[in-house]
Amino acid sequence: MTDQGETISTNWFSQLAHPGFFMRWSAYLIWPLALISAVLFAVGLWFALFHSPADYQMGETVRIMYVHVPNAWLSQFCYGIMAVSAVGTLVWRHPMADVSMKAAAPLGAAFTAMALVSGALWGRPTWGTFWEWDGRMTSTLILFLIYLGLIALWRTFEDQLRAAKVVAVLTLVGAVNIPIIKFSVDWWNTLHQPSTFFRADGPKAPASIITPLLTMTLAFTVLFLLLHVLRMRTEVTKRKADRLEHLKIARQQKAS
């Protein structure tokens, strides 16, 4: 893709992440990942909807948890991937790190949105309100805003290579800030209301809840990995095509 990417380093990791080589080995991942994800979803949904009892406290609404918790986990996992990629962009200046960051941002926003909406739909029957300014929901909403900011910043740049480095700085600034935000929101929350809510991931969760929860979480995580790989491959292809298009325009200008 870029000149950096074309030079093959002796380091095995950079070789693995060299765009051309990445396209080759990642092709073998797509169908296995899709298959695993589909099987996990089938099993997970069967457990979640048909083969698990209603909770003695929350009744049938406990089933919302099986789609809410995986998305909430992915909203954070995705930021973790972006932060690691941002370090890759800034420290090793690796082009695949750029691609990984760019591919992850919209996925993170989508999973965060799903976590928020399913959380609100869970909150209404459980707490009697769609939105509770509870520590977790508030920090998840702020995380969503951070994702939107990152996507907006990606889109304002025309030069995507320069954008990658700038977005990487913002991603890391955000990563440093997220614990501070989490802490301040928790402090603010204890100030305004004592939190007496049921904690979904408390140690008391029985096995009948753990099985569908774990299966669904794995299913969504594998799906995320699949989509991430696919989006990265698309971005590599797109950059290749963009370069050819530039060359074509240059040729045409020369000819005329």
Binding site: I142, L148, A152, L153, L170, I181, S184
Partner: peptide
């Protein structure tokens, strides 16, 4: 600094600051 080279920097910079400024507002 992030948006200095952008024409629309004045539009995008505030939305980058606001979520990160929330702890300051809380305290």
């Amino acid at each position: 600094a992030l948006s200095v080279s952008l024409k629309r920097g004045a539009v995008i910079a505030p939305i980058l600051v606001m979520p990160l400024a929330i702890p300051a507002v809380i305290f």
